[in-house]
Design a protein around this nucleic acid. Structure first.
Lengths: 142, 142
DNA sequence: CATCAGTTTAGAACCATTATAAATTATATT
DNA sequence: AATATAATTTATAATGGTTCTAAACTGATG
């Protein structure tokens, strides 16, 4: 739950000008009690419902990518036709409900540490992501 | 390393007619010593290099999806703009080299069992996938 | 060999994302 | 405060991977 002035300094500190578009997007994304997941499409709808003045889709893409690059968002890839973003930027894993297309954060109690025993020579691990797909009992299993 | 007559029965057994296009694709995908990863694009190139008669891109998509549905291929999603397929259909995990965009299978020695302690009520786990992104030491970490 | 459902095909359509280039805005400078 | 600048926004076009369409073709069946 940050307020406007905090967004301004947050943006400025990372070399992004606090434009009114970016501040609106901050408000939608970060002025909340809980973290959440969204697609660009959902975000665009959300913004147009919340504000009178529209934000161009190009700006939404630009801003989300800038925020991702600055580490304010994580991108989660579920399938090639669906890209989700997550305002929870801590290391964590996900359940993906194939019936509802909803992402659910796992906490550490739910998935134990993933133990990676080998390295690729000369390479550093940049992330470890676990995706647990779930579906109602009647669905096919892979 | 299967041969042509084996592809014919493999296809017939799963209710797919053994057309010459499908048999060619089988040859490219399954007539090998080792499993491998590919994108549709790479596959299409591979086919056009190997055979004189071209196979329409639509047919390649249709066939790959049919093979995936029948369980002859797995799809691995790395990012929203890159969909990989894997001829290794056993349960396993992946390293993804961000420098070269290459996927590498993990064997069980490399990643221990992922321990999932909680379930989503009324849902069944349909898959558990671990993706370990790696990059050269100089790259950014997330 | 006639039939029919399954398959292939070229090309159009689709849709999410990115690029473009002109207008606008935030910030630094005078 | 006015000016200069670089950053940002914007509408629109372009892109690229994938799916759709509908006509032509092929494999299996009796």
């Amino acid at each position: 739950m940050l307020k406007n002035s905090e967004f301004v300094s947050k943006l400025r500190n990372s070399g992004l000008r606090p434009t009114k578009q970016r501040l609106k997007i901050c408000e939608v994304l970060f002025n909340r009690d809980k973290t959440f997941h969204f697609t660009i499409n959902e975000l665009a709808k959300n913004i147009s419902q919340k504000f009178d003045e529209k934000i161009s889709l190009a700006t939404i893409y630009n801003t989300i990518h800038a925020f991702k690059d600055k580490g304010y968002l994580k991108e989660i890839t579920i399938s090639s036709d669906k890209s989700y973003f997550d305002t929870n930027i801590t290391k964590h894993h996900h359940f993906y409900d194939e019936d509802t297309n909803l992402l659910i954060d796992c906490n550490d109690n739910e998935i134990g540490k993933v133990n990676i025993k080998n390295n690729i020579t000369g390479k550093k691990i940049s992330s470890v992501e676990v995706l647990v797909r779930v579906a109602s009992d009647t669905q096919n299993q892979n």
